[in-house]
Write a protein that binds this DNA or RNA. Structure first.
Lengths: 225, 225
DNA sequence: TTCATAGTTCGATGCTAACCGAAGCATGAC
DNA sequence: GTCATGCTTCGGTTAGCATCGAACTATGAA
């Protein structure tokens, strides 16, 4: 069994409160500076710098220099997914009280998962996309011809997305709903589109808030209800 | 951000090599004694006992007393899933050299994932089940009427499985194939059935080995190739 | 009973790593 | 040039925890 130490190395990196705080702060896919992350994690800049160096060396985060700032972001959605799973585990094993504050409720309704829509709205959207035969289950998830036209109609540049190396569609398990929502390049593009159209906007944390008319437009687009 | 410490507590438990070794040893769903786990992890019994107490207190593993033995098993498939994801991360981030030994190849071909079939054979089976319309994508995965008859024909007692609280079908991400295989109560029952029929047997570690005739029967049952 | 096996608890040791102060670079503003 | 800001590196302290030896409890066998 030489798998143990391999897992342990990564898990140990996630196992420090300061680092875990930084990573969860990055879960919304944005890039943050070292100072911001230090503040969020509640440690000094020097300490944060050390942590970030470790995370970076392990390729869990990517760095981008910009002037005298250094921006950090998760190196991929798989990192965010593991964090989500760990939250799910923490919840099931009772390590965390079930929080039911208003903020928690907002997170469950709609939130950002790395760069795409998650929560009730996210699961709802994938369900609808399946019902309307916009996507089909192939190896993972695949866009149908009908789906292609549909999303192009929504203003998504499918051709461009297909050129990228990122999978177009990806089923991503939602920790609060325990069902899948739509990730991948398409999932990201859709969320961008919703925000651009003013259907929804990003609040503090990872909360996504739909405007009343935006929610109406969203439901109408996907024939929900 | 109070999510950080929550994640960190669990991740820290997985972040010790000895504990990680024990948990990976339990990933095949079997229950092992404290002595066995100590041996596998390469630590003394006292040390192992301490680790097991921590894992148990965090509800990551369950204990069962039997005479003067204490048997430990993972508290759920979600624990195994997180471990699989961590392995996937370790692989992508280059923390682990791509092992290509014969044992590794065997693991990729067919292995046990908590209690169901994973690896190439596992992914193949779910693909086939979809192609034959035995399962359909509902919220997660659902058995079709055709699928029900099919699996009953294979000797699976679907009615009994449905009475349990465990979901019948569950898509489970395969780290080596990066695609889904079939988990849930049905996935577990199918693997049991394959072994009972002598199509396959469990080797050391998590390797599942199909006999030549078993592989033939498997492919024939699912109309593969 | 006595002995053996399985496991826990306690105590001491030693290593690792998180932390921060202070100093050092690097970039940009003026 | 000077100064400020953003971040890293170095050094020293501290705290936590993994480890094991030794003693102890519990179950089973003879």
């Amino acid at each position: 069994m030489k798998d143990g130490p391999v897992i342990a190395k990564i898990a140990a990196l996630l196992g420090d409160p300061a680092r875990a705080n930084m990573l969860t702060a990055l879960m919304d896919g944005r890039a943050l500076t070292a100072s911001e992350l230090a503040g969020l994690a509640g440690v000094t800049l020097q300490t944060a710098s050390g942590h970030l160096a470790k995370l970076s060396e392990a390729n869990l985060i990517d760095v981008e220099k910009q002037g005298r700032h250094r921006y950090f972001r998760l190196s991929g959605s798989d990192v965010a997914e593991v964090l989500e799973r760990l939250m799910g585990l923490a919840q099931r094993t009772g390590a965390v009280r079930v929080r039911t504050g208003p903020k928690d409720q907002a997170l469950r309704t709609a939130r950002i998962c790395y760069d795409h829509l998650a929560g009730e709205r996210g699961v709802e959207m994938l369900d609808a996309a399946r019902r309307l035969h916009l996507v089909a289950e192939d190896a993972d998830l695949a866009l149908t011809t009908k789906g292609r036209d549909f999303f192009i109609g929504l203003g998504v540049d499918i051709d461009r997305l297909e050129k990228g190396k990122r999978p177009l569609c990806r089923a991503c398990l939602d920790w609060s709903e325990r069902r899948n929502h739509l990730g991948g390049a398409l999932g990201a593009a859709l969320l961008d589109s919703f925000i651009e159209r003013g259907w929804a906007r990003r609040l503090e944390g990872r909360v996504i808030s739909f405007t009343p008319t935006g929610a109406q437009a969203f439901r109408s687009a996907f024939s929900i209800e």
